[in-house]
């Protein structure tokens, strides 16, 4: 076996035998995917629940629509009490031609939705009752909108974040622990190039990133979370590789400055955490104020994330890789160069 192969195997074994690092690389980001996926999963998709009393064409039409979910009550007073208590946004009662709507004024959004739907249904019923033909015909159909369901931006975001954790921490902790334990000295005393050691460690990180991609996407496409991948998902692979390189160089820099694993771990956290919040991991950056969006452009995670969203879920083509790739490569070169300058073999 060549030095390169056996070093890579040694590193893979060392890494995958460590339950703590496995937890932080795979389980920890997945926990966020599951929690945020379930928390936000309902928003936008669920139906408003209202109370109904009696029966008739209006109530039948409300039940047939997709926007509302109906809860039956025997008398109006009981139903109105539910509205007063805040358990339901509105109640509709029909008794022959008499249709009553009582709603909670406090929740304006829900009130607007319900009154709009109910008056629409009532108008439609009135029109049908007159037997007149329609003067205006509304043509309505859904289009693909730019805003995404939470799982659609959470998956690329948390994947990019997970890759940043494993690459930054992996590089920093390996470097610090090898220097402290004199493994670096031992390598320096062996007739093996520094490049061999570095490249084999980088390859392990890249392999980890690809594995994270497979695992996270496999979880997110489960029906509970409902991720839909675009046709060009494989364009995410170059981004995973370039992102790993960028974050690995950050880890090398952190590892060059820190003497102990504890310090390296703290410093790596100080880099990764702010980056994950501003880089669009947990919410779309578009929701942030303009100045914050500008700030977030300095983080490689932001660019990796943008590229990931574009190719994984928005279905954009290879041209979407141009900017993120250029930024990640540039970042790797600059930070990597600084890291080699400040690199120390010994404490």
């Amino acid at each position: 076996m060549t030095a390169f192969t056996s070093l890579s195997i040694a590193m893979i074994k060392g890494f995958y035998r460590d339950r703590t690092s496995l937890f932080f690389m795979f389980v920890f980001p997945l926990m966020f995917l599951v929690i945020f996926g379930l928390l936000l999963g309902g928003s936008g998709g669920e139906r408003t629940k209202i109370g109904v009393v009696g029966d008739g064409p209006v109530i039948a039409a409300l039940g047939a629509g997709e926007a509302l979910e109906l809860q039956r009550f025997d008398d109006l007073d009981t139903a109105v009490r539910q509205v007063v208590d805040g358990d339901l946004p509105a109640v509709v009662a029909q008794d022959g031609d008499d249709v009553r709507l009582r709603f909670a004024a406090s929740d304006r959004a829900a009130a607007g939705v319900v009154t709009g739907i109910v008056s629409g249904v009532v108008n439609e019923a009135n029109l049908a009752a007159t037997g007149q033909p329609r003067t205006f015909v509304l043509d309505q159909r859904p289009v693909e909108d730019v805003s995404l369901k939470p799982i659609q931006y959470l998956t690329p975001g948390i994947l990019s974040w997970g890759v940043s954790i494993s690459a930054v921490f992996g590089a920093a902790l390996t470097l610090v622990s090898w220097r402290k334990k004199q493994v670096l000295r031992r390598i320096r005393l062996a007739p093996v190039g520094v490049g061999t050691v570095l490249v084999s460690r980088v390859l392990v990180s890249i392999g980890t990133a690809l594995l994270q991609g497979v695992v996270f996407v496999a979880v997110a496409v489960l029906p509970v979370f409902g991720l839909t991948l675009s046709g060009q998902w494989y364009l995410a692979i170059p981004l995973l590789v370039l992102g790993t390189l960028a974050f690995f160089s950050v880890g090398m820099l952190v590892g060059a400055f820190c003497r102990t694993e504890e310090a390296a771990s703290g410093a790596a956290n100080a880099v990764v955490l702010p980056m994950s919040f501003l880089g669009g991991t947990f919410f779309p950056v578009e929701q942030a104020p303009d100045w914050l969006q500008t700030v977030s452009l300095v983080f490689p995670l932001r660019h990796m994330n943008d590229g990931m969203v574009d190719v994984l879920v928005r279905g954009k083509g290879i041209e979407a890789l141009a900017v993120p790739s250029a930024v990640l490569i540039g970042f790797t070169l600059v930070v990597g160069l600084v890291a080699t300058r400040v690199f120390r073999w010994e404490d």
Binding site: L7, V183, R186, L189
Partner: peptide, 26 residues
């Protein structure tokens, strides 16, 4: 050169340590 007693690769067995260090020398 024998270094301090902790100069090993993480979580490898005795056999694997020797094999890995050996491979650095071909």
């Amino acid at each position: 050169v024998q270094l301090q007693a902790s100069s090993f690769f993480e979580r490898l067995t005795a056999k694997e340590q020797l094999g890995t260090f050996g491979s650095l020398y071909g």
